Computed example of a mutant assay.
Amino acid sequence: MMHLSVKSVDAWWAHVQKQKIAEKYNVQISPPEQRPWNMRDFVLIDPSGVLWRISENTD
């Protein structure tokens, strides 16, 4: 698993959607969610099976 901390999850989510990453690379992506541990994130599983958690702190 990889964890990428960013300033704006929504901006990253918009970029991933605009670039059609899921369709181009046949990867699984889940939409942004607020997590109980004070993070908002989305998950992307890349073609090699690595889970990427792209998140921002919300505290």
Rank of each mutant, 00 (worst) to 15 (best):
47 P>C: 03
6 V>A: 05
36 P>W: 02
33 E>Y: 06
9 V>K: 00
27 V>E: 05
16 V>S: 09
36 P>V: 04
14 A>N: 13
49 G>L: 08
43 V>A: 15
2 M>N: 15
21 I>K: 05
39 M>G: 00
40 R>H: 07
21 I>W: 03
16 V>Y: 12
1 M>C: 05
2 M>T: 10
7 K>H: 15
11 A>V: 11
5 S>D: 09
28 Q>V: 12
10 D>S: 06
16 V>P: 00
57 N>T: 10
33 E>P: 04
21 I>Q: 04
39 M>K: 06
38 N>A: 06
23 E>D: 15
2 M>Y: 15
3 H>G: 12
15 H>W: 14
59 D>H: 12
22 A>V: 08
14 A>Y: 09
42 F>D: 00
42 F>T: 00
32 P>C: 02
8 S>D: 11
1 M>V: 15
8 S>C: 03
18 K>G: 00
49 G>D: 10
49 G>N: 05
38 N>S: 06
4 L>S: 08
30 S>K: 05
28 Q>I: 05
17 Q>K: 15
1 M>W: 03
57 N>Y: 04
26 N>G: 11
22 A>I: 02
43 V>H: 03
29 I>F: 04
16 V>K: 04
21 I>V: 14
33 E>L: 14
15 H>D: 14
37 W>Y: 15
44 L>S: 02
39 M>R: 07
4 L>W: 11
18 K>S: 08
11 A>W: 10
20 K>Y: 06
18 K>N: 11
7 K>R: 15
24 K>D: 04
30 S>Q: 01
54 I>R: 10
17 Q>N: 13
49 G>Q: 05
28 Q>L: 15
13 W>Y: 14
39 M>V: 02
23 E>L: 09
27 V>S: 09
28 Q>S: 13
18 K>L: 09
8 S>R: 07
36 P>Y: 07
24 K>V: 03
49 G>K: 12
49 G>Y: 10
46 D>L: 07
41 D>S: 14
4 L>C: 11
14 A>M: 13
30 S>L: 11
46 D>K: 01
5 S>P: 02
57 N>F: 09
21 I>N: 08
1 M>N: 09
41 D>P: 03
44 L>W: 02
55 S>R: 03
46 D>Y: 06
5 S>R: 06
18 K>D: 08
8 S>V: 01
9 V>N: 01
48 S>N: 08
43 V>L: 09
44 L>F: 02
9 V>P: 00
12 W>Y: 14
56 E>V: 05
49 G>I: 15
6 V>C: 03
53 R>M: 10
10 D>R: 05
55 S>A: 13
15 H>N: 11
